[in-house]
Every structure is written in C-alpha cells, then in structure tokens.
Write a protein that binds this DNA or RNA. Structure first.
Lengths: 335, 335
DNA sequence: AGACAAACTTTACCCGTGTAAAAATACATA
DNA sequence: TATGTATTTTTACACGGGTAAAGTTTGTCT
C-alpha cells in the first residue's frame, strides 16, 4: 500500500481511508486514487485489513443441506443482499451432519464475522455447541428455530401453511391425512404435524397421521419408500394426502406413479396430494404439486435486515425476536 | 498467543510451531500445550496467520449455479476431501451471472488461496477475466471446460454419455431425436450435440436435432415450454427423445404429462425419453428417468487430487492436463 | 484578503503471528 | 559421565495496513 500510495501521489493513511470508504476523501483525491488504481491493480491485503479492524466485514451463512434447492434459493437471495450492503458473505453447508455443523461453527468463530445467518440442522444439532457459538458471535437463526438461541429467529409460520392447505383440501374434497417422517430432522416438521392436528380438531374433523420410517436428508427416497409401503398395505384412510414437505411429496408422487395410482383433482383421479414449501421443483412434478409457498423474499430480506440491525446495535437485541411469515397457497394440478 | 504461551509454560515461537504442525514439537511439549488448550479456549487469529504465511491453507470452490443439485453434490464431495487434507474450502456460486462470477474471481484473488477448483459459467463467462485469474492463482477447471484456461480440466466424456444413450435407445427401439437449448449456457451441451451427430452418422442413422428457445439457468421451465410447443406442433420425427441434460428432460416430462402423452418403454406408451447427467432428482420423475450418469466420485476425487498436485508443484504443471470420465448408463422407466 | 473548517501529510505505534539466528537446555547414545 | 543432536528459549524483525496526533495545505465563505 505504501508503494501504491507513492505511485498515486497520495499519502498512505489517506489511501487507507479511501479503501475503508471512498466517500470519506475529497472528490479530487478519490479521482486521483482511482486513476492510479487503473494503472496498477493494487488491492489491500484482506488479512492485514481484518487483523486490524475491530470487526470484519464478513457475514457467515450456514445452511443444513445445500443439495436442497430450497436452501440454494435462500442463499442466493441472502448473498445478494449482503454484498449490496458491502459485506462479504461466506457460505457453509452442514450437509446434514452434526460433526460438520460443529466444525463450521468453530472455523466461523475464528473468522470473527460481523454476524452470522444460521439455519441449524435441527434435531441433529449440538445444542450446547450452538449456544456457545451464539453467545460469542452475533447470530440470527432462520428457517429452523432452536428455542432461545441466537438473538432472533426469522422463519415461516407453519400454522399458516397447514391451515391453508387443510382448508383448501377440505373445501374441495375429502379432508386430508397427514404424511410425515416419524423422526423428522427439521423442527418445522413437528410444528406442521401439531398444526395439522389442531386445525383438524378446530374444524371437527378426524385427523390421520401417517408416520413413515427413514432418517437423514434423502426425503424423496424416504417419501417414495414410505409411499410404496402405505399403498401396498392399502391403509389409506382418505383419498387426500397432505405431505409435511414437498420433497416428501415428490417421493410420494413417484410411489403413486409406480403403483399406477392417478393423482390429481379431476374426477378420474384416485388420489389428491398436496404439500408445503413450494420447492423449486414442485412446479415440474407429474402432476404439478399443489403446495403452500414460503415467502422466500420476506424471509431472506427480513433475516438480513435483522442481522444488520443486530450488528449496528453491537451484537445484542433488547429481547430475542421471532418473526414468522405466512404461506401463500399455490394451486396446481395434484390437488 | 503470547499470553497463552505463558499460561502453558511454553515459549511463543514453539507454540506457533505447534499450531502449524502439532507433530513438529516434542511429544511432551505437545501434551503440555494441549493440556493448556483444554483450560483456555485459545485459537490463533487466522488473519494474522494468513498474513505471514507465504501461502494460505484456503481452497476456493466456484460453481456456476448452486440451485442445481448436481453442483451441490459435487461441492459436498469436494469440500470433504479438502477438509480431510487440512485445507479450508470457501464456496462460491456465480448464480448464473457473469458479474457475480467476476466479482468472485476478484475477491478470491484477495484471499490468496493455495488453489482454486473452478466450474465456470461457460458461454456467459468473461474469458479474459478468467485468463487473468488463472495466471495468478493455481486453478483447476472442472465440469465445464474453457480451452487453455487453468492448469487442468477434469470433466465428463460427453461422447461416452451420448454414444451410450444413443446405442441403448437404438438397440431397444427407434433411434432418438436430440432435444437441446438453442443457445446453451454450458459448453457440455455443444459437445453433446456434436457427439449425437457423429454417433448417428457412424451408425448410419438420420439425426434430428430439436433446438428450443430460452436463455438462463431455468432449464426445467425451458424444457417444459419447448416441449409443449413441440408437442402442440406435432413435429416429432420419432417416438424417442434424447435430452441434452436431465433438467431439460424433467421439464419435457412435465410437458408430456400435461399433454396426456404417456412416456415409458411399455407397449402402451407413446414416447420414450432419455437424458444425461443422473441428476439427483431423475430417480423421482414420473416415470423415472433413463439417463447416463456422471462418475461424481471420480470427477470430484480427481479434481481435488490434481489441484493438490498442482499446489505441490508450485502452481504450474508441465502441460495442461485434460481428463474425461466416461458415463454409466442408468436404465429406468422412461426409456 | 482574511478566517475557518475540512482534508491531507507526516510520523509513529499498534495488531497478532511467522520466522530467523544465536544461545541454552533436554534427550539419547556410547 | 561425556558427547552430540534435537528442541526449546530468547531476541528481534517482518508482514500490511488501521489509526491517532500534530502540523500543513486546501477550499469555502464573508
């Protein structure tokens, strides 16, 4: 930087000031520096910069499973907002494994990020590791909540998701049975089942929960296997199935297809299937999937905004915030 | 670190040595440091560390489009291998945009990584920006090749993909027509079309290429729209369609379903559809998709190995290497 | 032109760690 | 126990830039 400062004819401290905020120097100085920048391709050493700054301009983003396009979409939106605000996002995926989640947490602490947007694994998470992390790094949880951890949680209102699908299905045909994994990884799944039970009770309908076996993050295959089993055993209490999430539904639809069961809302169909999430692929299932959509934009926007507010207020909020966005029903061909 | 050194009763330079390689200090010293590490939770400041090291332990990974589960899978495998080798992977997605790809390249240069694994956008890439980058940072290209850039390219052998699918389809029914995007983003697409033409010629069959409109990375929707148009116009030269890639095929299958066209290899089916990639979702289409599978493991393993070799040899290889892995035919229900 | 504030230059020290050189100590072997 | 080697300690400087203080220049306003 010293060399570059000489080359540009400006003193090093002023050049340093320029790189921290180009608007903090006089217009003519800025032009002079930028002219020199055109001649030499100098850029400050980020390691030296971050070592001296009290706080880096990095923001950590952790998602549980990047092979799920839902998270890929969230990430895209979040990264963009961080960059626009002058931060450098660093993306990490736990790939469904606690060990990885913990090691990400550790290396993220070493990065001293200004803040972290964190979608935890859920049931598989190491609560105490997360607690330690959150008390050291300004953290906003999203998508999947762990009570009391982080300064805020931004997610979707599972009750809104389920009540909309249940009401729609009930209005247009038989009341739905609820298909879910017996031991779901994601805490939203439990909230959705509870919401299903409560909504059915409110509407004075008899609930049916179909819990299928399977562990891990290969939801499609779990849904398919579980679906095949249910269909073979013929233990369907209704002709309408509401899946806990779209990936499960994708597998279930595959099972129906294999069994020659026609899914859809026409008279000649055997079964209706609906679900939750509006997964990027749910538009392309056969038939296309009726589902309750996340408000992707609001969740990502509000998560990032909350994190910025948290950073501005020094890493602590007055009290833990929890914001849930309602779903939007997407009616397609499957129900 | 000075404080921690005093607390552990070991001198600072030795502690520094320990953190660079725990085996480089005497066993008793190591034990003493690790005992102290249990009492205090000290970890070296990565920024100070990287500032002084001639080379960091970071490895950059760039993919063109993370919302495509194919890349998510690749990334998972690559990250794991990097971590196991003691490196810290940093993941970036260009999200299909040249501007983003260029800014990733720039911030990656500032990170002074030991090496970079780079799957470029392809047609949308800024060749000169990539050339500059590759001449400054040890880079291995994967998945999508740009002639002459980087020290090596590791990918899939498109000819192997196409010849296997064409031969299989021809052996079991009508010869296929080839469905592709008119202006594909990914260079593999062009290679596949050329391979289709050459294979058909070799087999003395008449080739039919169906080029559909559409730009960007929303392949499913492009395949669906293109499919609808083709089916409506009834301009199908054969009953067998070979799609350039699985995502296009997923959209095409949706179009067939919408049009009431039965896809599969049974006698009562109207059409056969096959494709290339073995996309993680192709198992769950209706019907399940017959496709030529990437050798995910080999590609990721060999990419990483090549990068390590490149790093060890100081950032240059004797000559640019190009390794292509053959496909494996996956026969499922669609053809 | 004079006065004042804003911006800049100069100088100097700081951050936390890598690393080299010389001296001191520990360990292993005969 | 003597000797040689492997480690460690001590001391010192380097890395590249943030930042504070004091003095100087520039620009603006009356």
């Amino acid at each position: 930087m010293a060399e570059f400062a000489i080359a540009s004819g400006i003193s090093r401290p002023t050049v340093s000031k320029y790189f921290n905020d180009p608007n903090s120097v006089r217009q003519s100085t800025r032009a002079q520096i930028e002219e020199a920048l055109g001649r030499f391709d100098y850029q400050p050493n980020i390691y030296a910069v971050n070592q001296n700054r009290q706080m880096t301009k990095n923001i950590g983003i952790i998602v549980p499973y990047l092979a799920d396009p839902f998270f890929a979409e969230m990430v895209r939106s979040i990264e963009r907002r961080c960059i626009d605000a002058g931060f450098s996002p660093s993306l990490f995926s736990s790939h469904g494994e606690q060990v990885l989640e913990n090691s990400i947490l550790q290396s993220l602490r070493a990065m001293k990020p200004a803040g972290v947007l964190f979608a935890p694994l859920g049931r598989e998470s190491d609560k105490s590791a997360i607690e330690t992390f959150c008390s050291n790094v300004p953290t906003v949880l999203f998508d999947s909540n762990i009570e009391g951890m982080g300064e805020a949680f931004i997610g979707s209102d599972n009750h809104s998701f389920v009540s909309q699908t249940v009401d729609y299905l009930t209005r247009t045909g038989e009341a739905p049975a609820f298909l879910e994994m017996k031991h779901p990884a994601n805490p939203n799944a439990n909230k959705r089942r509870d919401a299903y039970l409560s909504v059915m009770k409110e509407r004075q309908l008899e609930p049916h929960v179909l819990s299928i076996e399977g562990a891990g993050w290969g939801f499609e295959e779990i849904g398919r296997q579980g679906g095949l089993k249910i269909l073979e055993e013929g233990r369907l209490p209704t002709n309408t199935i509401l899946c806990s999430n779209d990936r499960l539904a994708i597998g279930f639809l595959a099972a129906c297809f294999e069994k020659g069961i026609k899914v859809g809302r026409d008279d000649d169909c055997d079964m209706r299937v609906a679900s939750h999430d509006d997964h990027p692929f749910s538009r392309f299932t056969c038939p296309s999937l009726t589902t309750a959509a996340h408000d992707y934009t609001s969740v990502s926007e509000y998560s990032v905004e909350t994190l910025f507010r948290l950073i501005d207020s020094g890493g602590r909020l007055e009290k833990r915030e929890e914001i849930l966005f309602p779903a939007k029903l997407i009616m397609r061909e499957s129900a």
